[in-house]
Nucleic acid binder design. Structure first.
Lengths: 396, 396
DNA sequence: AGACCATAATCTAAGGTCCGAAAGAAGTCA
DNA sequence: TGACTTCTTTCGGACCTTAGATTATGGTCT
């Protein structure tokens, strides 16, 4: 329909350069020859292009490998020190800031506790900005080396330079987090929903690795998720797609904190499960309380698994993924013991054709991957078709 | 992640050529100058490219338009007689075959009644093949001019040369419709779910026109649908995505004909609505019976609207579309009177941010658009990046 | 050791693509 | 008729990728 698409011959090069970089980043060290085979580009093109990339210091040599009686291959890899990305996790109880190199090794961390009830936007922004400066200092990185800051927040993020955040759990109605941060730093900023950043982390480095169509469910205190389509996060027209927590599973059912009835999140986050079981626990105790419930074999747990199966079934029919990853601390706790039940509950509601039980797996990165995922937002443009070493300034 | 992407400099041209063709096809007649502005290509490129296209007879001149004191614009348009596409609608009661030119004008039709209960695959295939020959003869088109045959069927179609069809309503377990048809014709074949073909028709020519992210719901005897993402039908990993009918809306609810519980289709198609109202009607009478129910103001209708709202709400949160089109004969019947209620029911379950009530609209093509949509499957590759006048032989 | 083989990386010539600028074409207006 | 406007085509140049030849770097065989 539309009229977008490539144009000139230089876009071609940018695209091929990005493709090469992706192959190198996700496929590990490789020789020029292997890259040629893998990308389909001619050896000549790979040679000139890697020459450029080496000159730009984006990639570096990484040893040699003998070949049966021929010239040894020179391995290449992405230069982890080419640049650094800051990832921020704005959570219920704390703001977590981490500095990563391109290989996603942590170089420095900073945490700031937030008193449970109060999530003053100004304060959160100040914590983030302080944290960014702190990790850059601690990591001993020149500011010019930092490629950007990615921030994972709860709720829905409206795209645009203001990055308006709506998060009921924080009492944020339309907080212009992007604008608040922009006032304090010149670094490129990327703000997105924390469930999505975590999903991207699982996609790139965790259980979603290698898939192009996946669903990553994040079950913590609440329920969030990420839909991956064709290797990228599905965002929809207004960038608000993939709100898995508000998939309806019981028409006219329990009231969700979003105000609607019958949402998955009204039944399935730790908060909802405990509430349904009649257990009173504030957010600090949720983990222990849920563990106890699981230990006791509460019938609410069984129901929860059934309901999760219903929700997953809907997702399978709508998205036809090749893998479903269950993450988040509560998801891992449930799934760790009851994965087989979850698979069975899903299968019971799903036609065999698009679904195999083994496609449901647990997340591998643990619940702390939000910051990691946020940092990937910074790096992602490098693997897209954007002009290269020039930094990105949009807030997505 | 993956390693797909453009390669050579000729792909560039193919892509730009396709873009130009899309602009011309969906944007109506346009001058070279306008095309240049619209596509972003330079005037020089547009000129040479349109030269090629004219030489290939893919486009033709379409009159002139004066310009204030300058050389008049020569309008160009896609040549409707460049080729023809056959669209087939395999329905409950009949097999409908139609021949279209590139502008989607019908050149010939053929219908074959199918006795309600019996849907013998061999017979259906024979009807299709006979129909294809008949419309080609009646339309007075040289067989070489026919670009392919698109077929819309109920159920899930497995991609591949056999095009295995699973359709409970027909009692088709794994009917290799592609193979059956391949035996009788050498034309390129495209087999897909009828709700998807109809969705593509609404997307290209109906109420979905101009949108890039939409959901087209088809409510007839059952419920089907199409999810459009970024201008294309969302198909997922195994091409089985978008099965809107099996979205669950009531955990543990009514048994659906698919075997699971609580599917949208267990509540919402004409069949389900009548069943819930306790009305007995066979498929020929459904339309009148549903109209009567609507006339009487049966409470089941109100409940149906509520449940539709719940389902749409899930879809909005998951896909964040910019438009929702309600089609299918039953959908149009309900929506014709109760659109406002449907919008309200959806809004009640949906957060305001991604949803505006006006995004729910009725289909414009009527219930007979399945064949039209099937024919678009044949034409679609021409607007993609596939090599040009060479025909496509895959079954999608 | 030296000749020969195998594999990797680079160089060179050729074929394509798009663009900008300038020229050409086809009207209008005075 | 000549100046002006607008649309379209032509031409030269900058880039990109490819195929094939060439150079680099090691092993193997006699």
């Amino acid at each position: 329909m539309g009229t977008s698409g490539r144009r000139t011959v230089r876009d071609l090069r940018r695209g091929n350069r990005a493709m090469l970089l992706r192959a190198l980043y996700f496929g590990g060290p490789a020789s020029r020859n292997e890259l040629s085979a893998e990308t389909g580009l001619s050896a000549a093109t790979v040679s000139t292009m890697t020459g450029d990339l080496l000159a730009d210091n984006v990639i570096v040599e990484a040893g040699q490998v003998d070949s049966d009686g021929g010239r040894p291959r020179v391995l290449l890899k992405v230069n982890p020190a080419f640049g650094y990305a800051v990832g921020v996790d704005v959570g219920e109880t704390q703001v977590k800031v981490e500095l990563f190199d391109l290989e996603m090794n942590v170089r420095a961390r900073a945490h700031y506790a937030v008193r449970s009830a109060k999530h003053d936007p100004e304060l959160v922004a100040r914590h983030i900005l302080t944290g960014v400066d702190a990790v850059i200092a601690e990591g001993e990185v020149a500011p010019g080396q930092v490629l950007g800051v990615g921030v994972g927040v709860p709720g829905i993020v409206e795209p645009g330079p203001d990055a308006l955040v709506r998060a009921k759990t924080f009492g944020w109605e339309a907080v212009p987090l992007g604008a608040l941060l922009r006032a304090g730093t010149a670094l490129p900023l990327f703000v997105d929903n924390g469930a999505k950043t975590m999903g991207q982390a699982e996609l790139w480095f965790g259980s979603g690795r290698g898939t192009r169509d996946a669903i990553i469910l994040l079950v913590g205190s609440g329920v969030g998720g990420t839909v991956v389509s064709d290797g990228r996060i599905y965002r929809g027209a207004g960038k608000a797609a993939g709100e898995v927590g508000h998939l309806k599973i019981v028409a006219g059912g329990r009231v969700c904190r979003c105000g609607a009835r019958g949402c998955l999140e009204a039944y399935l986050g730790a908060e909802a499960i405990l509430d349904r079981a009649g257990v009173v626990a504030d957010s600090a105790d949720e983990e222990a309380a849920l563990a106890r419930l699981l230990e006791e074999g509460s019938p609410v747990i069984g129901e929860s698994v059934e309901l999760l199966g219903v929700g997953l079934s809907s997702l399978v029919h709508l998205f036809n993924p090749e893998r479903i990853v269950i993450g988040g601390w509560a998801g891992l706790m449930l799934g760790g013991r009851l994965l087989a039940d979850i698979r069975a509950a899903t299968a019971a509601n799903t036609q065999a054709q698009p679904f195999q039980p083994e496609m449901v797996v647990l997340g591998r990165l643990g619940p702390d991957a939000v910051a990691l995922g946020a940092a990937t937002l910074v790096i992602e443009p490098f693997f897209g078709d954007a002009a290269f070493p020039e930094a990105v300034t949009t807030i997505a």
